[in-house]
Amino acid sequence: MLTALVDYDSGNLHSAHKAFERMARERGSGTIVVTSEPDVVAKADRIVLPGDGAFPACKKQLFDYTGLFDAISEAVTQNGRPFMGICIGMQMLATRGLEYETTTGFDWIGGTVEKIAPADTDLKVPHMGWNDLILDARHPVLDGISTGDHAYFVHSYHFRVADPAHRLAHVDYGGDVTAIVAKDNMFGTQFHPEKSQAAGLRMISNFLGWAP
């Protein structure tokens, strides 16, 4: 089994790579490859889109790789390969993002990526650090994960989904902030599972065994 971590020059792939490698080794779930090659993505059994940074820049960087988005799109929306988006890689699933300017997303999960606006104005933005997950729905990738488990966040925007059924978890930060989204064979986290110690590693392991 081959899991492709898509490299489009966005942020720190090293820790995500190492976390997926470790969990793949522990559960005997094949090989993890970091790639920008459409051919490799097309062959992969699972696709992970990580990323750090601003929505418009990340989308541009991804689309600057000729054929890369088309390969991801075909694998995920036509061939039903399990997909995991992390942080910006999850936000790009939305219909649109409002960071700096309005940018269209993949529109695979309806909704808008908008600035976090805590009701309590003493709360700092970015939302940075460990927050406890409040699960809204069960999902195979959340096996062994409970409300109250902590995950590591660092972001100023979040994904407000159009259909509440697509939100699997949120956190409280002066109001609801979306933490996990899912639809069909797609799963995405606003937090960084590769930085979230035991709970994060568990989700990565579950994803590697997920058969949607």
């Binding site: 942020g11 720190n12 750090d52 940074g53 601003a54 820049a57 970015p126 940075m128 660092v154 972001h155 100023s156």
Partner: peptide, 8 residues
């Protein structure tokens, strides 16, 4: 920050 995002 423009290149890598404020978060890092």
């Amino acid at each position: 920050a423009d290149r890598f995002g404020s978060q890092c």
